[in-house]
Amino acid sequence: MSDKKPIIEFRGVTFWYGGANDKPAIKNINLKIHEGEYVALLGLNGAGKTTLQLCINGVIPNSIMGEFEGEVIVYGNDTYDTPVREMAKFVGMVFDNPEFQLSQMSVAEEIALGMESLGFSYDEMTKTITEVLEIVGLRGLEDRSPFGLSGGQQQRLSIASALAMRPKILVMDEPTSNVDPIGKEEIFAVAEQLNREKNMTVIMAEHEVEVMAAYADIVVVMHEGEILLNGTPEEVFSNVDLIHKLGLRMPQVTEYAHRLNQLNLASIEKPYPVTLDSAVERFKDIL
């Protein structure tokens, strides 16, 4: 992990949606994320991924009622004291159901909504709309109704709407859960492009472990509100027994390496490979 100063830091964060007597949604979270990192949040439904993400732009605790403990510092701003609208300049959010995030009558107006709130000039808005539509591959659809787009297009529009506010961090909560396989690929490609080409910090909660293993710099595994594993994909997915116990899937090549070891067919040292390319590289000498 980098020695640089983190841009996002969770310090002992606990959050209860109800009162403090209920079970917390996240518990004593300590996490540091650095600029330009692609962070994958893995965990079953109810593990606390969404709650953790909502803390990054301050929707928790500013807009969602509950009990909050600890500190979340994003680019030096304590989210507890910073209005969400201020945080919107740093953090773009994309949620799981694209249709539920849309409200305007045209694609261009949907993207402009956030910029209007921040007082962008008309020229800035038109320029930005063109730019972000280019990035997400929706150029030419400016005048279409957002509700007439496909699921994948709608989700890319949600990404464009978040990008229009020029955030440094893109937080995506299961962005592919409601879209078809082609739409999924489009969304992963956009996220990867933003991370690699624009050095944008991406924090994505996902169930697609193969894709996360390939793209993410850091994988964070959550269970019942706690972070159980945090490291590179190779480090995290080498904890095979724990990941199995949590009911999570592993990348198939990692599973394969583990089985070969279990059946004494090969002796593959940890960390296991997590992508096809790294597996080919590792296995070519032993098979």
Binding site: L54, S63, M93, F95, G114, E116, Y122, S158, A162
Partner: peptide, 21 residues
């Protein structure tokens, strides 16, 4: 869900607002 999404896009923020249309 929409209200959280809007809030995350600075909707309802104070200060000068502009119009795209």
């Amino acid at each position: 869900q929409l209200s959280i999404s809007l809030e995350s896009r600075a909707f309802g923020s104070s200060g000068k607002k502009t119009s795209f249309r």
